[in-house]
Simulated scan of single mutants.
Amino acid sequence: MKQVRGLSRRSVRRRTGRVLVEGPQGVREAVRFAPDRIRDLYVTAEGAQRYAEFVEPAREHGVVVHETSEEVLAAMCDADTPQGTAAVVDWAPSTLASVLAARPRLLVLLSHVRDPGNLGTVIRGADAAGADAVLVSDGSVDVTSPKVVRSTAGSIFHLPVVTGLDIGATLSALDDAGVRRLAADGVGERTIDEVDLSGPHAWVMGNEAWGLQAGTRDACDEVVRVPIHGHAESLNLAMATTICLYASARAMHA
Rank of each mutant, 00 (worst) to 15 (best):
R5F: 15
G6E: 03
G6R: 08
S8L: 11
S8P: 07
S11C: 04
T16V: 03
G17I: 03
G17A: 05
R18Y: 08
V19T: 12
V21E: 07
V21Y: 06
V21S: 12
E22P: 05
E22Y: 12
G23C: 12
G26E: 04
G26N: 04
V27K: 03
E29Y: 11
E29I: 05
A30F: 11
A34Y: 10
I38W: 03
R39L: 14
R39A: 15
D40C: 13
Y42M: 01
A48M: 04
R50E: 07
Y51N: 02
A52F: 05
E60W: 04
E60F: 01
G62V: 05
V63C: 01
V65G: 06
T68V: 13
E70N: 09
V72D: 11
A75D: 08
P93K: 09
T95R: 15
A102F: 13
A102E: 06
R103T: 02
P104C: 09
L106F: 07
V108C: 11
S111Y: 01
H112E: 14
D115V: 03
D115G: 02
D115K: 08
N118I: 06
T121S: 15
I123N: 01
R124N: 05
D127T: 14
A128E: 09
A131W: 01
A131M: 05
A133N: 11
A133S: 13
G139F: 05
S140V: 03
S151F: 10
I156L: 15
F157M: 04
V161P: 00
L174N: 04
A177L: 02
G178S: 13
R181D: 00
R181Q: 06
L182P: 01
A183M: 03
T191W: 13
S198F: 03
W210R: 10
G211S: 10
A214G: 08
C220P: 02
D221F: 14
V224C: 01
I228S: 15
H229Q: 08
G230N: 11
H231D: 10
E233N: 15
S234M: 08
L235G: 05
N236W: 02
M239K: 00
A240W: 02
T241D: 09
Y246Q: 12
Y246M: 09
A247N: 10
A251K: 12
M252C: 02
H253E: 09
